[in-house]
Simulated assay, not measured.
Amino acid sequence: MLKKIGWLFLGGIAVFVLMFHLGPLVALAISLAILYYAVKKFFKADSAFGKIVWALIGLAALMASVSNVPALIAIVAAYVLYVVYKKWNEPKEVVQVVDDPFVHFEKQWAELQKHY
């Protein structure tokens, strides 16, 4: 029971941290999407001017992505929330005691055969 309370507390903290850093996380996603698009366009560009423009756009997007340190905290919080969810829904080990009267049937049958 105490373990569940600890997981609940850790999950609650992770949710608040994730919600607090949601803005930088969205900004990181947008800057990474722009960087991806700029790299694709850079390799497809035929002229030197086009390559320079896309390289500058990609460099600006890379700098925006790298400067988003709070988004990394949000990613860590999301991972912690995932781990808490997995631990919370972990199946409990159930030990069943089988009281089967036929467990030692062969042995008992052999003993009865000796007497008759």
Rank of each mutant, 00 (worst) to 15 (best):
L59N: 00
D46N: 12
I73Q: 09
A74E: 08
Y36E: 01
W88E: 05
V53Q: 02
K3N: 09
L8P: 00
F105Y: 15
N68R: 12
I73C: 01
F43K: 14
I34V: 13
A74D: 10
W88V: 06
Y37W: 07
V39W: 05
A64W: 05
V80D: 09
V69R: 04
H21Q: 11
Q96L: 13
A110V: 00
K114H: 06
G11A: 14
N68Q: 15
S67W: 01
W7E: 13
A77K: 10
D46W: 07
M19T: 12
V83C: 02
Y37L: 11
K87R: 10
V83G: 00
W7K: 10
V83F: 04
A14N: 11
Y85M: 04
Q96K: 15
A60D: 08
E93D: 05
Y36A: 07
L2S: 11
Y85F: 09
S31Q: 04
F102Y: 14
M1H: 09
V84E: 01
I57H: 01
Y82R: 07
G11V: 01
F9V: 13
W7R: 13
G50E: 03
H104P: 01
W109C: 00
L28E: 09
I34Q: 05
G58N: 06
L35D: 03
F102E: 13
F16P: 07
F42R: 11
M63D: 02
E111P: 02
I57N: 08
A61K: 11
F42Q: 07
Y85Q: 02
S65I: 05
S31G: 06
N68I: 06
A61T: 05
F49R: 15
I52A: 10
W109G: 03
L35F: 11
V103E: 13
D46T: 15
K51T: 03
V98P: 01
L18P: 06
Y85V: 03
L18E: 14
I73S: 11
L59Y: 00
W88I: 12
L25P: 01
G58M: 09
Y36C: 03
F102P: 06
L81T: 05
E93W: 06
L22D: 07
V66Y: 02
V97F: 09
G23L: 02
E90I: 00
P91S: 06
V39Y: 07
A60H: 00
H104R: 14
W109Q: 09
V84P: 08
A45D: 10
K4S: 11
D46S: 15
F20P: 00
L56R: 03
P24G: 07
N89G: 08
V80C: 14
K4E: 11
W88Y: 10
F105N: 15
A74G: 08
A55P: 06
L10A: 12
A38L: 09
K4L: 09
A71S: 10
L32A: 12
F43H: 14
L10I: 08
A110M: 11
L59M: 14
A60V: 05
I57R: 02
L25T: 04
V26Y: 06
A27M: 07
A33D: 06
L81C: 04
A33W: 07
K86C: 11
H104N: 15
L35W: 02
A74F: 03
F102R: 13
K107S: 10
L10K: 05
V97K: 10
L35Q: 12
A27T: 12
Y36P: 01
W54I: 00
S67K: 07
K87S: 03
L25I: 00
L112K: 10
W7L: 15
G58R: 04
E93H: 08
D46H: 14
